[in-house]
Amino acid sequence: MSEPVSTVITALISPTQERASAGLMGAGQRLSETVGAEHVVVACGPEDSESASGLAHGADRVLLVRSPALVRDRQEVWLQCLTRMGSELNPAAIVLGNDALSQEITPRLAHRLGGASIGDAQTLTAEEGHISITRSVYGGKAMAKVKLQGTPAVVWVRAPSMDPARGRATPGQIEEWDFATEPEMKIQLLETQMDAGEGDRLEDARIIVSGGRGLGGPEPFEKLKELAKVLKGQTAASRAACDLGWAPHSWQVGQTGKKVAPQLYLASGISGASQHIMGIADSKAIAAINTDPNAPIFKHCQFGLVEDFHQVIGPLQEKLAELLA
């Protein structure tokens, strides 16, 4: 008789963001290898057979969940579906992404499976039969290693900044998983509103221009948008700027906001509080425009300009438009 194989489940429940999905797949695959477990990827399907075969290149098994109720807004359905999978497959770990839905589900799924939950994992390891992760704590002022003493370990990771999965020589098996029962919906979705000016999600952006309280009002954020257009990038903001209503909340980057990993993060009028840095630390390069040469943001920068944003933005945009024409 063969040993029962353990599994690591990667739950791709918001599959639209390429970079996040790739990073999540990678995190799940590497953890499954460390644990010596089968890598099972769960995704919505099977409408898009091309992406399913893509997933199979990073997994032993791909479970495409088919349910009429399974739209991503319905946390209840995913929760029940993953709970049932968790109890059938008895995984060592369930790895989720950092989208809002995954974050919302993580603690509840762990509780239903009698496991341990944690979020914002940057690295995952297995030691003495337990999963350990590292994460930033105290608003980014310290780094903790945390041992999950319950099984399964239900963990959401900073998906976009994780390395993608290694391609396998032989793709894994693709199976369909019917989840027919429509659970009773206690919570009903009434209305959805997208914030203006968001094309790609911030997590996928290669260049981000971001503004903070130092910009002094909502108008300069319009200028940031224009600069972003020139750079084919996205706009973001600090919590202070969002709380002041100068930028929509979906732009917030940091501990509570998005965790981004662009090639360039240009911060204007942002002091660089540790909670803000937590969201940008994975950027390839950070640059800043700030009037204060002692602003903590410069400690994290590759290059920086000590100047007033209002004096810089106009000529900078012109110059860049010229250089990138």
């Binding site: 918001s14 807004d73 989208d99 809002a100 839905l101 919570i187 009903q188 979705l189 009434l190 209305e191 959805t192 509103q193 997208m194 914030d195 968001e198 999600r201 929509p248 909340h249 979906s250 998005k258």
Partner: peptide, 8 residues
Amino acid sequence: NDSGWQKF
């Protein structure tokens, strides 16, 4: 949520 808001 990730790109705006939803009402429930």
